[in-house]
Simulated assay, not measured.
Amino acid sequence: MNLQQQLEQYSPFNEQEAKDQEIILRYMDTFDNLLTRENEFAHFTASAWLVNRDRTKVLMAFHNIYQSWSWVGGHADGDANLLHVALKEAKEETGLKNVKPVSEEIYSIEILGVPAHVKKGKHVATHVHLNVTYLLEADENELTTIKPDENSDINWFGLEEAIAASKEPEMKVVYRKLNDKLTVYCQNTVL
């Protein structure tokens, strides 16, 4: 199933996801370069809500650009397999070797506003990320390492602590949603 089919079949968790799904699908019908940063207004990213086996903690990285604790993830850069992107980014940004999907299904979707910033010495204009999130799992005892060009620390947080650690109000809303979904997921799944 291709990315557009996955997004069409995705069942939104709330009103935000329903509206974002509608807009993302409209953009996919309008633009042919959403998988690359060549589309300077909107492009796909994949993120990971990276939890421990007990689903009681989430691994966060201290993001250098935003100066805040953040989930891990990155740009699609041409790869339409966003689960692959989320797994790759989770490993690259944390140093973990053993990251696996809890499910291969899309866990969450959101359109995220990205303020203008400087990256690698170049100005990046304000734009949006068409983000697809996956629920991934790792062993909280496995050694982690930072990725100095992107983050300066990595830490496991309790689910509520992860929300509190973020300095970005809009991301706190996203992380709350991801935790709420995790509670529902755990109620419906045997760990």
Rank of each mutant, 00 (worst) to 15 (best):
I111V: 10
Y134A: 00
V85H: 06
T94Y: 05
P115R: 09
L135A: 01
A90N: 08
G121N: 02
P101Q: 09
K120H: 11
K120W: 07
A138D: 00
E93V: 09
Y107P: 01
K91D: 09
I106Q: 04
K122N: 09
V72W: 08
G74P: 10
T133F: 02
A86L: 06
G78Q: 15
W71K: 10
K100A: 12
G78T: 15
A125M: 02
K91T: 12
G74V: 09
L112H: 07
L136P: 01
Y134C: 00
A138M: 04
K122T: 02
I106E: 07
E93W: 05
G95F: 06
L96W: 07
H84K: 15
L135G: 01
G73K: 03
A90Y: 04
A76N: 09
G73V: 06
I109G: 02
H117G: 02
V128E: 13
K88H: 14
E137R: 01
H84V: 12
V124I: 11
A86C: 11
T94V: 08
H127I: 00
T133R: 01
K119R: 08
A80N: 13
P115N: 14
E105N: 11
N81K: 15
W71E: 15
G113T: 12
T133E: 02
Y134P: 00
E92R: 10
L83S: 08
V114G: 04
P101Y: 02
N81Q: 11
D79P: 13
L87F: 12
V128P: 00
G113F: 14
K100P: 04
H129G: 03
T126P: 05
V132K: 04
G73F: 05
L135F: 01
P101R: 06
E105W: 03
A76F: 10
L130P: 01
V114E: 13
V118T: 12
E104G: 12
A125F: 06
V99Q: 04
L83Y: 01
E110V: 11
V128R: 10
G95R: 07
K97M: 14
T133D: 05
L130D: 03
A76P: 05
H75T: 15
K91L: 06
N81F: 10
H127E: 01
T126N: 11
E92Q: 10
Y134K: 00
V128L: 04
K120N: 13
A76Y: 08
A116G: 10
K91F: 09
N131Y: 00
L96R: 03
G78M: 13
A125R: 09
H123N: 13
L96K: 11
V124K: 06
L96E: 03
P115W: 13
